[in-house]
């Protein structure tokens, strides 16, 4: 795997003063893979992405990108990367088309080639009709698409996407996912961070869950669910609160219970059997929902329910 690895990290650390943002992580991302970083805010995802993007120097550990050393060969690595940052940093002084052509020039792409490339990319992200518009009036989804088009301007081998669909409406997200999926089919390696579980399940072949600067789990979405959750989850609602008292009453049903303010989650491999047992104990829930486990369950199990900002 090592010689195939587009990204390889061993004991990678990033400190800001005495705050440790990334605390010794190991990574291997293979060519053509879609790899995800999952984790709450402040888990160290963006710091890791910035180190991979060669705009932040690792404090300690080994890191190699495309087989090169990011400290020595930052320029060469960046010329082969596409970066879509968390916040759109499009150039408000330029038009949609100029945002692409100007950016292409930073990669040393000729004026004529840049023009041609901009045309193709605007088609690809469905913004051809807005080519001469300024950036400001574009919707959030359009700006995101333009940022992704901009990241593709140098035909990168590796594209880094930091929370690509945060803040977008469902239509815009689905359009973006579809475009990203097409890039993946073209053989582009995608590395993304997200805290949307559905996004990780949709896009990632493999992902790591980060918490407090460390990797706490790694695997395919399916494998993570199998390892860290049960096959099914039963959501029970009762007409009363607090629900804390139900914890004891549900002991022995499923593998684990999670009492939330508005509902109780029962983790069980056979959801229907668990529901039958609840009824047999005459607990009379006012609402019952049996669903498949999702990455969200894994995520909340691993990183806790405490709000992190």
């Amino acid at each position: 795997m090592t010689d195939q690895s587009l990204i390889r990290a061993r004991g990678l650390v990033k400190r800001f003063g005495d705050f440790t943002a990334v605390d010794g992580i190991d990574l291997d991302v293979a060519r053509g893979e879609a790899f995800g970083f999952l984790g709450p805010n402040g888990a160290g995802k963006s710091s890791t992405m910035r180190m991979i993007g060669c705009v932040s120097t690792p404090t300690a550990g080994e890191l190699s990108i495309l087989g090169l050393d990011p400290v020595k060969d930052g320029t060469r690595i960046r010329s082969r990367l596409g970066v879509c940052p968390q916040l759109d940093n499009l150039d408000p002084d330029l038009t949609v088309r100029e945002n692409l052509t100007t950016y292409a020039r930073y990669f040393g792409i000729s004026r004529a080639a840049a023009k041609q490339r901009a045309l193709e990319l605007l088609e690809f992200v469905q913004l051809a009709d807005r080519a001469e518009s300024k950036v400001e009036p574009l919707s959030g989804g359009m700006k995101r698409r333009l940022t992704i088009a901009r990241a593709m301007v140098n035909e990168p081998e590796l594209v880094l996407l930091d929370e690509p669909t945060t803040g977008l409406d469902p239509q815009a997200r689905h359009l973006l996912w579809e475009r990203l999926f097409r890039l993946k089919q073209q053989g582009v390696t995608l590395v993304l961070t997200t805290h949307y579980m559905d996004e990780a399940e949709q896009l990632c072949d493999r992902l790591v869950v980060m918490d407090a600067g460390k990797i706490v789990a790694e695997g395919s979405p399916r494998a993570l669910i199998e390892t860290y959750s049960t096959r099914e989850v039963v959501e029970l609602r009762f007409g009363e609160s607090p629900l804390e008292g139900f914890r004891d009453k549900l002991v022995g049903i499923g593998e684990r219970t999670d009492v939330l303010p508005d509902r109780v989650l029962l983790y069980a491999d056979d959801g229907d059997a668990a529901v039958n047992e609840v009824h047999r104990r005459e607990l009379a829930p006012s609402g019952v929902l049996v669903r498949r486990s999702t990455l969200e369950d894994v995520f909340l199990h691993l990183t806790g329910r405490t709000l992190v900002d």
Binding site: G53, V55, G74, T75, R76, R78, S79, L81, V83, P85, N89, L90, D91, P92, D93, Y103, Y106, F107, G108, R150, N154
Partner: peptide, 14 residues
């Protein structure tokens, strides 16, 4: 404020 260079730094430009 405009963060003009944030985007530029992701390119080969130093």
């Amino acid at each position: 404020y405009a963060k003009t260079y944030d985007a530029v730094l992701s390119t080969p430009v130093r």
